[in-house]
Design a binder for these strands. Sequence first.
DNA 1: GTCTATAGTATGATAGAC
DNA 2: GTCTATCATACTATAGAC
Lengths: 213, 213
Amino acid sequence: MSSVSQTSTERLASGERIPAAERREQILAAASRVFGERGYAGATTDQVAQAAGISQPYVVRMFGSKENLFVEVLERALDKLMTVFRTVIEESAAADETTDQRSARLGAAYADLISDRGILLSLMQAFTMGHEPTIGKVARDGFLAIYSLLRTEGRFTADHVVDFLAHGMLFNTLIALRMTDGIDDNALVSELVACTFGAKLDTVLDAVARAHP
Amino acid sequence: MSSVSQTSTERLASGERIPAAERREQILAAASRVFGERGYAGATTDQVAQAAGISQPYVVRMFGSKENLFVEVLERALDKLMTVFRTVIEESAAADETTDQRSARLGAAYADLISDRGILLSLMQAFTMGHEPTIGKVARDGFLAIYSLLRTEGRFTADHVVDFLAHGMLFNTLIALRMTDGIDDNALVSELVACTFGAKLDTVLDAVARAHP
DNA sequence: GTCTATAGTATGATAGAC
DNA sequence: GTCTATCATACTATAGAC
């Protein structure tokens, strides 16, 4: 009864030794949440360690430095985004959908992905760090890779991609601001939110309710 | 020859006593830059003090706490934005312009305002802090006040305002990412930047060149 | 209105045992 | 693969002089 039916949380609590690859993902997921809520500078390696259920020096040991940990968190978020978009584009192409249909599917997939606040906020943090030599370059290259994916594989016009990205950035802002919390109290808020998310509103509200009930 | 022809920088260097109101604005301008570049948590009150040419304890003394200093920086940025938008709307109404003309003017005014990286980045930092009780509320209320201004005094439809804000958020992202720096080296970057900023491209590039030559 | 000195705390990273 | 102990540094905020 030692390892077969245990969840990774149970294994964490028991002080068990876990393969490095699995531990890495645990730490990255925890770091994503912590960096998202506190910002790059505000997050501490100790908070990440506690969220992952291990010791602070082990976090530093495994990733070399706090900066490098953030870079890996960012790359993980960008990877997930690229993978989701690529999948949607392939499915859409296979189904011979119109540009508008593809765009709507991508928007829904994006709304779904950023319902993980850690991913959303880590990306937003990175966007404010263009002046940092290392992190800034990763963020720029990642943003550009997404533009490139939509433009070429997605076969959108430049105008269309820019429009798509613009609305994505507004999604980000409203969710990060927790603007969706005031939706019942204020007519202006609910108009703004409804109009921004359109058909994706339910996805978003469900995710918000799950994140902070 | 003591005070008549001196710039405020000269007066700073000379250790002169300066009225509180003027000092406040000096500190807020400095804090806007520092908070923008390093983030709320990453910025230190000492960095702000040095940027303003005064001592660290005096910064704390004058604003009570680091958090309160950030709130005032944020409110200053939001005030400037509201003032600029209100002015443009009034001018546009007086000239009987169309909705599209008003929208273009507002976009140009916005591009001009956020060419102050301090303002741009302090706003973006605040947008990631929706979960902070004090700062989050100021940020939400500020965002909503802008929506309200455009919707009512600006007489735009909800869809129009959302579209305007969405493109504004993409402006923010590209400038903060310093994406404009790679405009000469990469065809995809220059396409993205050109298509995002359109006629406002020159304003933006000029501002960037002034900010980090 | 502005400074110096400093208390009290928290941080990232390293050393080294198991 | 993981921990405990710890160093060196840096931070906000207060006290109190001028």
